[in-house]
Design a protein around this nucleic acid. Sequence first.
DNA 1: TTGTAAGCGTTATCAA
DNA 2: TTGATAACGCTTACAA
Lengths: 339, 339
Amino acid sequence: MAGRRSGGRRATIHDVAAEAGISRGTVSRVLNNEPYVSDTARRAVQEAVAKVGYVRNAAARNLVTQRSRAIALIIHEPHSLVLEDSNIGNILIGTNSVLSGADHQLVTLMIDSQRDSDRVVEYLRGGFVDGAIILSARTGDPISAAIAEMDLPASMVGHPSDAPDIPFIGIDNRAAAEAIVRRLMATGRRRIGMLASGLDRDSGQDRLLGFTAALGDAYDPDLVVRHQFYSYAAGMEGMEELLARDPSIDGVFAASDAVAAGALDVLHRRGVVVPDDIGVIGFDDSSWALRCTPALSTVRQPAETLGGLAAQQVLDQLSGVDFERALILPTEIAWRESA
Amino acid sequence: MAGRRSGGRRATIHDVAAEAGISRGTVSRVLNNEPYVSDTARRAVQEAVAKVGYVRNAAARNLVTQRSRAIALIIHEPHSLVLEDSNIGNILIGTNSVLSGADHQLVTLMIDSQRDSDRVVEYLRGGFVDGAIILSARTGDPISAAIAEMDLPASMVGHPSDAPDIPFIGIDNRAAAEAIVRRLMATGRRRIGMLASGLDRDSGQDRLLGFTAALGDAYDPDLVVRHQFYSYAAGMEGMEELLARDPSIDGVFAASDAVAAGALDVLHRRGVVVPDDIGVIGFDDSSWALRCTPALSTVRQPAETLGGLAAQQVLDQLSGVDFERALILPTEIAWRESA
DNA sequence: TTGTAAGCGTTATCAA
DNA sequence: TTGATAACGCTTACAA
């Protein structure tokens, strides 16, 4: 399992016991910081461990304890997500920090093909981890189904409409979208369009719902352009399309900051002035928002907290304490110069 | 180790053997696709497996085979890297793809604190993985030292000056930097400055060396601003500083695209026209390059290939075949509008 | 407080 | 081609 040593086999508890002149049982007790061990024995073991260069074999330990102290974080579609968009980095940081505090190792698994998906299911089934956190799942995601079926402690960040019964944590995308679109309307805009993305996820769907709810009677289906990804490219293409459909448009709600950035660049090249001619708003408050010119008005997600609480949900299941299976965190509006 | 089943314990080879009415040895052979198994036995096992819902226990298997079929990819400093910069996404994609093809699971480990660092060393020592790929190591990195010491098959992307004897793969940062700076000089610039970053890594050091080499006698130490991170913020601060030091500057080499992007924005706000007043060049050809206005001239790194070959280096060590321990890949210049 | 010994679920050797 | 059986390295009753 571990890297083959250059020469000789690696030390076991057996060697430590022999070196220290005591039994393996006591060595194990020292290693696990258990009570009822004499100071003499403790010292002897510590010295022997150092001397023979002992390191615990995880496989053997996991086999008997039925635990690994590792938690998986599953990321779908590295292309569109890690590269282009979003708070994924902050989610990771929050998760890692909570897990680290509980002395669990975070292992990130990336799914980029059917083959990956199958292998990851094997990995989870095999017992390499005690639990899992699922990011950016789409409707019909086979991993989530497998996790639910194998009854592995888990938590989803976000919550696809058809998700199996797995605890989750998220934000109210619909309400947040509605709120920021209303604010855009309050600036006097009359013809507002939307660059919708990620409609195969709850986030995308709900942001669109919030948009239509805010517009009410003013809603014009013709002013919604759909795209698969939350990407910069989607923003560029979508904005071109929107301008083609209605040159008199004076407001745009982009489904994410990356999308908004693409839209802003198109507007800039076309000589359309933001926010004078068109007000633009985004969603996420990711690192894109402040890079945009002008700075983007957007919805701030508590990404790091989201990641941390997802980790906590998994740890709680592991320790058997009660916990809230459905968590919705509040968002806020970061109002800047783009609208 | 795995998630506790709702009720009853999970099926073992024992159960399968009993159900199929044959020995555990034969069951194991079927499971591992070994030869010398009758079709009758094979079918019986497959049916039994399905019936009792058997899944192999990885810990037990790893214990006896001394293998895990998993490879770690270690990322330092998620903040500055994953969020701000670079080709890390592409490296991941390349690594995952090669490992996936060899039926190995990629597990990404993030290091964000001393505590993380210690835990990761434990994880590696424990035998959870058969090998490791190290990204963005700095000089004096304890993880690399530990990996070298424990003799774990590994590969580094990049190569810190004091790195222990671990195979590596990288690009010639010095030559690439020199080449693009020469090209900038060829556009007639006279006062060229550099926004240097990551000087605690080989990449940062070498890019600076390439810069001074290209300038030769024209090199003015006063025109080099140093910053710790390859970040957008570093580019903004550095550019302000550079303009303060010498308003007549007419060329800038940024140590990365993110840094260049920050510099471009400062110039834009100051009303300095690029490339008319100042020519700006970057490094990486990351997703930043095309988002910049104007599009950034930069050095293209074969990031995905880098990741793939690092994975291959590890796999080669595992299989014991000969391989090249020091790989340097060629780069090319992507010349666009910023210079 | 310590030692003994029985597993944990596989794979792998050796006979049959 | 198959079946016993001995490891693999550790934890954990149970006895002492």
